[in-house]
Amino acid sequence: MTDTTTALARPLDAAQLPPAPVSPTVSIPEVDPDGDVAKLMTAFRVLQMQHARVLHHESSTRGLNATDARFVFFLASADGEGITPKQAGEYLELSTGAMTSLIDRLEKRDHIERRPNPDDRRSILLHLTPSGSEVAREIGAVYSSAFREVIAPADRAGLADAFDRLGAALERHSRSVSVAGTIAGLQP
């Protein structure tokens, strides 16, 4: 046995080891002594995770990806009025090229159709086909069932209102961060 092999075969003495690295302590100010907001945040994160899983599963079962399904739902919310590709791209936060690919993909699967925009002859409106409406109905039924299972009828309007207000608050925050970032980018 060589000296290196002998050294490796001996048990290590803990006193000879360097100290283990220590993670920094991150302290979050306690603004909610009862823990209600922390519990709410945890529940919200779990809800987001489960939503992503369900959307992925339900979409892939139908040969779609989650963005395709989100677009189908967005079109379903238009109540037959149609959506311009630009509106859809802004909603989904997709580039023009990515939006064109998505439209082509869903049109090829016969879930959407392009129609002339009666208000702007240079533009088109995107509409769901019966197949696309069925996809929205089927995936939406999974969520509707879960809401019915968990939320009492008397609580649904209040929860919908809370979701609306939370969405508005997050949008205000997003806009203020976006504006602050733009202003910071303009400063020398």
Rank of each mutant, 00 (worst) to 15 (best):
V72R: 00
S60W: 01
L64E: 09
K39T: 13
D34S: 12
F74E: 08
P85R: 04
S59F: 10
S60L: 01
Q87E: 15
A88V: 01
Q50W: 04
H51S: 09
P85I: 06
S77E: 14
S60D: 01
V46R: 05
D79G: 04
E81Y: 03
T84A: 10
D36I: 05
D32R: 03
Q50H: 11
D34V: 04
V31M: 11
L55F: 01
I28G: 00
Q50F: 05
Q48N: 09
V54W: 11
T42L: 12
L64Y: 03
S77W: 01
K86W: 07
T67M: 08
H51C: 02
A43F: 12
R53P: 00
R62Q: 13
D36Q: 13
M49S: 10
E81R: 13
I83M: 14
P29G: 14
S77G: 12
G35A: 08
R70G: 04
E30P: 02
S23R: 05
D34M: 06
F74V: 02
S27R: 01
V54K: 00
R53E: 06
H51A: 07
E58L: 07
P29V: 15
L40E: 05
Q50N: 10
T42R: 02
S23H: 04
F73V: 02
A43N: 05
A76M: 02
K86I: 13
V54Q: 05
D32G: 08
P29A: 15
H57S: 13
D32H: 09
D68C: 07
V54H: 07
P29K: 03
T25F: 08
Q50M: 11
V26C: 09
A69R: 03
R70F: 02
I83V: 15
G63A: 11
L75T: 03
D68I: 06
M41A: 15
R45W: 12
P24D: 11
R70H: 09
G63Y: 11
A76I: 12
A66Y: 00
I28D: 02
Q48P: 00
K86A: 10
A78T: 13
H51L: 11
P85C: 03
D32M: 08
Q87L: 05
G63T: 09
T42G: 11
S27G: 06
A76C: 03
A78Y: 03
S27Q: 06
H57W: 06
L40A: 15
D34F: 02
V26W: 12
S59G: 09
V54I: 13
S77L: 08
S77P: 00
E30I: 06
R45E: 14
T67A: 02
P24G: 07
F74Q: 08
R45Q: 10
R70Q: 14
F73D: 00
A43H: 05
T84F: 01
A43R: 13
H57T: 15
N65R: 05
G35E: 11
V26M: 12
T25D: 07
H51D: 13
N65D: 15
